[in-house]
Amino acid sequence: MGGVWLRPEERPRRPRLSLERIVEAAVALLDAEGVDGFSMRRLAARLDAGTMSLYEYVKAKEDVLDLALDAGISEIEIAGEEDAGWREVLTDHMTRSRRVMLRHPWIPALIGTRPLLGPGSLARSEHVYATLDRAGIEGPLLTAAVSAVSGYVHGFVAEELAWRSRFRDPDAEAALRARVQDLLERRAADLPTLAAHVRAGDADFDAGFELGLSIVLDGIEARISGR
């Protein structure tokens, strides 16, 4: 009598694993712990699953990292009007790339160590290559131009992330910058150029990124004009 209403409440079943859930959890774990803190055991714990159950969907930890990296890169929105200039398109795309990498600080650490052959990565590579191809760059020069732009962005963000991870207190950062500026001024006699031009107190990463990117694009534009 009473049936289901009188039986003890059963513990809800765990959601069945899927590759999509594993990748989503891997991205979250990497966001929280970074590459060094990532392990299949920790990933399984986040999914409330057994470690061995993950291997029904992937062959190795390296597969999960590849999938997570492609998922992160896929967050870079591909945008740009057909009639927009190549500089405008690349500036927009590289700015979006930086935002995504700041949101997922582990991406720069993985980009240089893994083949970017996932669908998200290839689609974004196609976008960048096609943009410069339409501008008239081709062959080895096209590959070199793409490498120069992407290398600048990855390197800038990697240094920015390293700095941000070390100096989370604005007051401590400002104090260090002031000491550096003071050192340069005191050594102006033997470091005249640094003393005259370096402003250690400038902590505007956004402005620095935009200016550096424009310098890289100026070099590409000079090559296009030279043709």
Rank of each mutant, 00 (worst) to 15 (best):
M1F: 10
V4W: 14
W5I: 05
L6P: 05
P8E: 10
P8F: 12
P12F: 07
R13I: 04
R14L: 11
R14F: 06
R16V: 14
E20K: 07
E20C: 06
E20S: 13
E20V: 09
R21K: 10
R21G: 10
A25W: 15
A25D: 14
A26N: 12
V27Q: 06
L30M: 13
E33G: 10
G34H: 11
D36Y: 02
D36H: 03
G37A: 11
F38R: 01
R41H: 06
R41K: 05
L43M: 06
A44V: 02
A45Q: 11
R46K: 08
L47V: 00
D48K: 01
D48W: 02
G50N: 04
T51S: 03
T51K: 03
S53A: 07
S53Q: 01
Y55K: 00
Y55L: 02
Y57F: 15
V58W: 11
K61C: 07
E62W: 05
D63C: 00
V64D: 08
V64I: 14
L65E: 10
L67A: 13
I73Q: 05
I76H: 13
E77R: 08
I78C: 08
I78R: 10
E81H: 04
E82Y: 02
A84R: 01
A84Y: 05
A84P: 04
V89N: 04
V89D: 07
L90K: 04
M94C: 13
T95L: 15
V100N: 05
L102D: 09
L102I: 08
L102Q: 12
R103W: 11
P105N: 06
I107L: 15
P108H: 03
A109Q: 06
A109R: 01
P115R: 03
L117C: 04
S121M: 01
S121K: 00
E126S: 07
V128S: 05
G136T: 03
E138W: 12
G139D: 15
L141C: 12
L141R: 14
A144V: 07
A145Q: 13
V146F: 15
Y152S: 07
V153N: 00
V153G: 00
H154E: 07
H154D: 09
G155L: 09
A158V: 02
A158C: 06
E160W: 06
L161R: 00
A162P: 03
W163I: 04
R166Y: 13
D169N: 11
D171E: 14
E173I: 04
A174P: 01
A175H: 06
L176V: 12
L176P: 02
V180F: 15
V180C: 14
V180W: 14
Q181F: 10
E185V: 07
R187Q: 09
A189H: 12
D190Y: 12
L191Q: 10
T193P: 06
A195S: 15
A196Q: 13
A196F: 11
H197D: 14
V198T: 11
A200Y: 15
D202E: 14
D202M: 08
A203H: 11
F205A: 13
D206F: 08
L211Q: 12
I215L: 15
I215K: 09
L217K: 00
G219F: 14
G219T: 09
I220V: 15
E221F: 10
E221N: 08
A222F: 13
S225T: 10
S225M: 07
R227K: 08
